[in-house]
Design a protein around this nucleic acid. Sequence first.
RNA 1: GGCGAUAUGGUGCAAGGGUUAGCACGCGGCCCUCUCAAGGCCGAAAUCCGGGUUCGAAUCCCGGUAUCGCUGCCA
Length: 496
Amino acid sequence: MSEPISNTENVRVRFAPSPTGYLHVGGARTALFNWLFARQQRGTMILRVEDTDVERNKPELVEGILAGLNWLGLNWDEGPFYQSQRTELYRAAAKKCLANGSAFLCYCPAEKYVGGDHAEEGTEGGQVRRVVRCGCRDGNPSTPGTKPAIRFKVPVSGTTTFFDAVFGDTAFSNDDIEDFMLLRSGPGQPGEGDEFGQPMYQLSVVVDDIDMRITHVIRGADHLSNTPKQVLLYRALDAKPPVFAHLPLILGPDRKRLSKRHGATSVTTYREEGFLPEAFQNFLALLGWAPGGDVEFMRTAELIEKFKLEGVSRTNGVFDKAKLEWFNTQYLQKLPIEDLVPQVELELRSSKLWKEEWASGAGREWFTRTVDLLRPRIRLLPDFSSWARAFFSDEFAIEPAAEAKFWKDPKVPDLLDKLAGALAALPEWNHDACDHALRALCEAEGVKAGLLINATRVAIVGQAVAPPLFDTMVVLGRERVVQRLRAASPTPISKP
RNA sequence: GGCGAUAUGGUGCAAGGGUUAGCACGCGGCCCUCUCAAGGCCGAAAUCCGGGUUCGAAUCCCGGUAUCGCUGCCA
């Protein structure tokens, strides 16, 4: 019953952001689904910048959008193409529609962002009721003498249907489709400036999707109601519509469309907060799609392998940041260490804690071991620079709260000093040697090992929370541990 | 207002005519334990409402409701 979603011809998809803002999570998810589908089908991913609205378009935002895609690892094979540079193509298409009778010149006054005389016809219950058929379509211009725009002449009856890989066969009555705008009217008065202005969205999208031989249009479900207009346009331009796949929208916790009100909606923000791109990708992939089984942790290759348009949900979903954070900790924990280390290196470089000796050889080994030791307790990349600072720098502070909690006992300074001595005298430096030395000292002094373990942790990393003590000692090295213990031991217990 | 889409625990997804309605996040508890995580175990928590079809409905049909989208010389 349903048509094949992919066929033998090469799959060609596109991601088509509009540079009126940053790359938001909804756009990123759309890009991801296009990309997963293209990579799985060994197809072609095209990037197209939809910048036909000169007034709202901000060219400088394109860079940020591309940066966001790059961060997520979403590359493209063709483009970026800019619609603003393809105006003649759209004008030619609009004129073709004019010539074959599927469009008409509209002389109605240009009205932006408000429904004026043309757009409304009385009100009902306080709501504006739009008119679907423009008077100009039969050659009766309301204000002849002004510069015309071009509108599509929607058939007066009948049904327009299309296949959607997510929503199935879909039909709209033509009576409900308005005579939509194809080409804006030209600037200036009649006789001056261009004959016509910039193309409208519906036109440029269809013309480009035809020209770029797009086989699958994968985009947000907010375009579902636009699709019949576009199908009509395909027909008017003698082209076969592609397979459509509309993705459910992403909502905020209040079930409203995700926006700045909900906090971070730009993918750049998540990069800056220190999320791992692959974790973000995994999280995004599962927002509106699931492979069917119980697995959720899927790295890029597995997502590509399992992705199916048919499995995409039709329900709008809420962006759950807590789950994203969980994914991030999972990736921090499970990523092969060699995949994680370079990202930590970047983090330390940006926080000026990086030392070149960690770039190769024994230094690299130490760095890798240390990252591996640290990672179960890391939530976000910057934690390596802040929370784990004492592992990478000798300049760190003793947290007052940790001091208050674990240096309470008056015996602590003396114990730390004695431990420093015992450790300094150790014939070898490893986990068990440190362990035995500390426990032997505690036994001799008649204190519980926990007391000294916790006190020592505070002394050598400045915090109450860190990896297991003896592993920490090994990684820090004898010299540092002894030195930090001695630095801590004479400190009188601070009275609150 | 018109048109369209959608409706499974708080959240994301599974079950697509027959299951004690499954998994994950989050939440609570226990275990592990040198701190905190991680991990393991246990628990609370859902089929929007109303009709119909059927031996049997979360699942199919109709109506209602709610939510979202479109209804721009925005994309």
